[in-house]
Design a protein around this nucleic acid. Structure first.
Lengths: 357, 357
DNA sequence: CTGTTAGCGCATTCAG
DNA sequence: CTGAATGCGCTAACAG
């Protein structure tokens, strides 16, 4: 139909003339129908003859028209934007990125796009980013809380935004959450070390003010207490917020007069830091190590790192499923879902303490 | 001011009565001013007395009002949504997630939110997701192309969307791109192996139909040719699209009658698969390995894995900077930016071939 | 300094 | 089966 312009064959013609994005009005003009008929075709509503339907579709292709979802949600009942927000601790952490991928895999088949952002344990950032997502009218929010008070989301919830908290429970806000069995998982990891004869086991954790770290510490003390071993706070170290800090702390610890024979690391970056320290001191085959949260290549190290594995994929999938269920209209009382951990023995956790000779 | 209702002290009062999200009109009514005055306050425009400004801000807090960015962009000149889209190969791959984090770190301080999605090397998914982002009126798109033809984005570009391609150049579309020195980097990695005495070096790559893999193969052949070594296609393996496939292929390869003394792995998952194979065959200290693209813990393996490291953080930051420059109005001709690779020797690449005795 | 009017792109409501 | 009017929440252009 544009044989005079073979060099643009197959490309939308008139869109080159338009100095702006085509609208439904433009499509209607090209197709020679009313705006409403275009709307019907775009939204797959019935009541359009096949002739007009085809003409409209041709015009859409010709102009390369894309409906404006923002404008649509403005007018449409319910005002859904087919958009959700995902707030994670740090997208470059493998735990977070596996979780993100799982959420995406639930959202995209539903035509829902995902805003993602990292919180870096910063409560203020949590507020700012939820505010930014809210301003974009996200239908739902999946949040790994960085702050200890989510009550500021009350009005968001009332406005109809679905909210699911992951990894940590929401505080002062009644919403669904998807959690890991932190206490039981940590206790199981500790029990594994106790079963292998350790009595002097250090705890190395990240920020002490976050719930998950506290719960894992609770599992640590619980297991020790059950075994009749008093907690020695001189081998309990917290606030190791980076691999490097964890590594340095572990080195200090092992240089102590009465060093622990085993280490329980409460977070994946801490575990890696400890593994580096042991390697550096050539103690990786003599000091036992169990880490909370799995990480890629943990099995390829020498020795393999024994971990209490979380299942970020299951957490993300479940959180997204719950979220869409709420967006879909489920008004039941909020529920807490728990995803179990799994102990994976790979070598580092099966090292026995030296003979007390 | 609500001493009769102490149980809700500090919380927005009237918002509980509103059955919907508050709008500027609601704020105006509460503050007793016109809608336009609210607009001015919300957008920080001058020309509002401090008295009215304060009244408006109080009303905003009371109602917990959030401006609707979608509605704003509908009316505002330029129609910016303060939203960009990021299309990566797979957000759970460490290369992609480091890149994502860097983009986020440029976007969020500007008040711009990021849609992220994974393409899994699927050209159709690329089209569908760019379409979905376009329907949400993203101001810009950063794309790691999965397809070999981005001309379908022509109209998007004309409509004013900024587009930057990363990792791979756009095909049949004239846009900025931020690339890694694939050919030179691969050649440098190969040269490292040649320098250590290897003459028989295998190439293991992922999908042969993607540009980056082709370029890395080009670097491989280039280095061999420069050294006067003919390319032996019996030790060139492609389409290793998973760790497991790469591992199996490496095992096969090393069981051959005349096995290579070194392996060049063209992608991070392939490198890990090969490392697993070598470990499994207990050849990790006798067969040399150089991988393209770094990955976490590569230094902690035994031996440490020598890699040609890309810099995903630099790529992401540069891509985002270029994108915002375009969104800001830079109309200059598209440019190709190149981020260099860096060879990191850690042990596996410095293994020498056995004596030809 | 403040307010009024119009209209962005679209879906809804109601008329044919 | 099709279309014309109205208004979603907001800002631009223009009054006062």
């Amino acid at each position: 139909m544009d044989s005079q312009l073979p060099e643009t064959a197959g490309m939308p013609i008139r869109s080159q003339q338009l100095g702006r994005r085509p609208t439904m009005r433009d499509v209607a003009a090209v197709a020679g129908v009313s705006l409403k008929t275009v709307s019907r075709v775009v939204n797959g509503e019935p009541g359009v003859s096949s002739t007009l339907g085809r003409r409209v579709r041709e015009a859409i292709d010709e102009l390369d028209f894309r409906p404006n979802i923002g404008a649509r949600s403005l007018r449409r009942a319910g005002g859904r934007t087919a958009t959700v927000g995902l707030l994670l601790e740090d997208v470059s952490n493998p735990f977070s990125s596996a979780l993100q991928r799982a959420v995406e895999d639930v959202a995209i088949p539903r035509g829902v796009m995902v805003f993602t952002a990292s919180l870096d344990e910063d409560p203020q950032r949590e507020r700012e980013l939820t505010r930014a997502f809210s301003a974009r009218r996200a239908d739902g929010l999946i949040i790994a809380p960085a702050s200890n008070d989510q009550s500021y989301l009350e009005s968001e919830l009332r406005a109809g935004t679905a909210i699911v908290c992951i990894d940590r429970e929401a505080k002062r806000l009644d919403v669904d959450s998807v959690l890991t069995t932190n206490v039981a998982g940590a206790a199981a990891g500790m029990q594994h070390l106790l079963d292998h004869g350790h009595r002097r086991i250090a705890f190395l954790g990240d920020r002490a003010d976050i719930t998950t770290a506290q719960q894992r510490y609770e599992g640590y003390t619980e297991a020790l207490t059950a075994a009749g071993i008093p907690v020695d706070t001189s081998i309990v170290l917290s606030d190791l917020t980076s691999q490097a800090l964890a590594q340095a702390a572990a080195i200090q610890l092992l240089k102590q007069p009465d060093p622990p024979t085993a280490v329980f690391a409460a977070q994946n970056l801490v575990t890696i830091g400890v593994a580096r320290a042991l390697r550096q001191m050539k103690r990786e085959h003599t000091v036992a190590l169990v880490g909370f949260d799995d990480f890629p290549l943990a099995d390829l190290l020498d020795p393999g790192i024994t971990v209490v594995a979380q299942d970020p994929t299951a957490i993300g999938r479940l959180a997204a499923t719950v979220l869409f269920d709420r967006i879909g209209g489920n008004e039941g009382p909020p529920e807490t879902h728990v995803v179990p951990t799994r102990l994976i023995a790979r070598g580092s956790g099966e090292i026995r303490p030296p003979d007390p000779a």
